[in-house]
């Protein structure tokens, strides 16, 4: 199988493009996911991913064909609507944030599934390929889809690189950020929008159900290796990239396997390794520290 993977990677331009774009997606998810985790917005990412489904279906019903950019616009619209509604519910009612997220996520996703079943029942609907958005199918992406995703992911990575210092301060200490003259409101809105875009461009390859995992797993794995945000972002990006590459490769050479689950399983493997041997409060490091303490106490 490794042989097949190498062959595909070396000789099939299509595969090369798919792998390159899922790699960029993995990096963008790791990077934006790191900021989202520290901002305690990871779950919002999950809600946005699920809420993207009805947007995709509505866009498809409106234009009657599968044009990725239009579908993604629909996904962005309902994704943003979901974040807005979550905010509205938490600020104007007694409902807590976790319950609000759960509510919006399931209502939007349920609506999406209803619309999707309707589309697949229509004549020719089952050829729409929309069901790939559930678990992701990188191999089903056209060359244009791949360019769109790679371009957007590259743009996200660039913006995160440029705004690294501003976002760091904004998340660590928003009051101090304001005192330093940063446009806090603008930066917040920009971050939320880019987080939504990250999720939306990823759903074709990873799927709405598992996209949030690509935001979260590389990020929490990276935390076991470093106490510095800069390195955390780099490591999370690398783990995201590896997961993207491996997931996309396996799913393209073995037809039929959905990409999303493969990417997430790979990322989960990285998490287990990080959790076990990571030098910052990883399992082994903790056990060793505990033994040193016991020894010191017995002396």
């Amino acid at each position: 199988m490794i042989q097949d993977m190498w062959n595909a990677l070396l000789h099939q331009p299509n595969t090369q493009w798919v792998v390159l774009s899922t790699m960029l997606l993995g990096i963008a998810s790791g990077v934006l996911g790191s900021f989202a985790l520290l901002k305690k917005q990871s779950l919002i990412g999950d809600a946005v991913a699920h809420a993207a489904l009805p947007g995709i279906c509505i866009a498809y019903l409106l234009i009657g064909e599968k044009q990725l950019l239009v579908l993604l616009l629909g996904a962005t619209a309902t994704g943003l609507l979901a974040t807005y509604l979550i905010q509205l519910i938490t600020t104007t009612t007694r409902i807590k944030k976790d319950a609000a997220i759960c509510l919006i996520l399931s209502v939007f996703f349920g609506t999406g599934i209803v619309l999707l079943s309707k589309i697949t029942q229509q004549a020719g609907g089952n050829k729409s390929g929309l069901d790939h958005f559930i678990f992701g199918q990188a191999a089903a992406m056209t060359r244009n889809d791949v360019y769109t995703m790679a371009g957007a992911a590259g743009g996200l990575i660039l913006i995160a690189f440029l705004l690294f210092k501003e976002w760091k301060l904004l998340i660590f200490d928003p009051d101090f950020a304001k005192n330093s003259g940063l446009p806090v409101g603008l930066l917040e809105t920009l971050f939320s929008t880019l987080l939504v875009i990250t999720v939306v461009i990823g759903i074709q390859a990873v799927g709405v159900i598992l996209m949030a995992a690509l935001l979260i797993i590389p990020t929490i794995s990276a935390r076991y290796w470093t106490d510095r945000l800069g390195w955390m972002v780099v490591i999370a990006g690398s783990i995201g990239a590896c997961s993207g590459i491996v997931g996309a490769l396996i799913s393209t050479i073995s037809t039929g396997l959905a990409t999303g689950p493969l990417i997430v399983v790979t990322a989960a493997g990285c998490f287990i390794v990080s959790f076990t041997i990571g030098p910052k409060r990883g399992l082994i490091q903790k056990l060793m520290a505990h033994r040193v303490r016991l020894k010191e106490e017995s002396i």
């Binding site: 760091k168 950020a177 330093s180 003259g181 940063l182 935390r223 470093t226 510095r228 945000l229």
Partner: peptide
């Protein structure tokens, strides 16, 4: 937060940088 003492102090310079 994944940051160290020196880095937090540097945040005081961000308004100038």
């Amino acid at each position: 937060f994944p940051t160290n003492a020196l880095d937090v102090i540097l945040m005081g310079r961000y308004g100038h940088i």
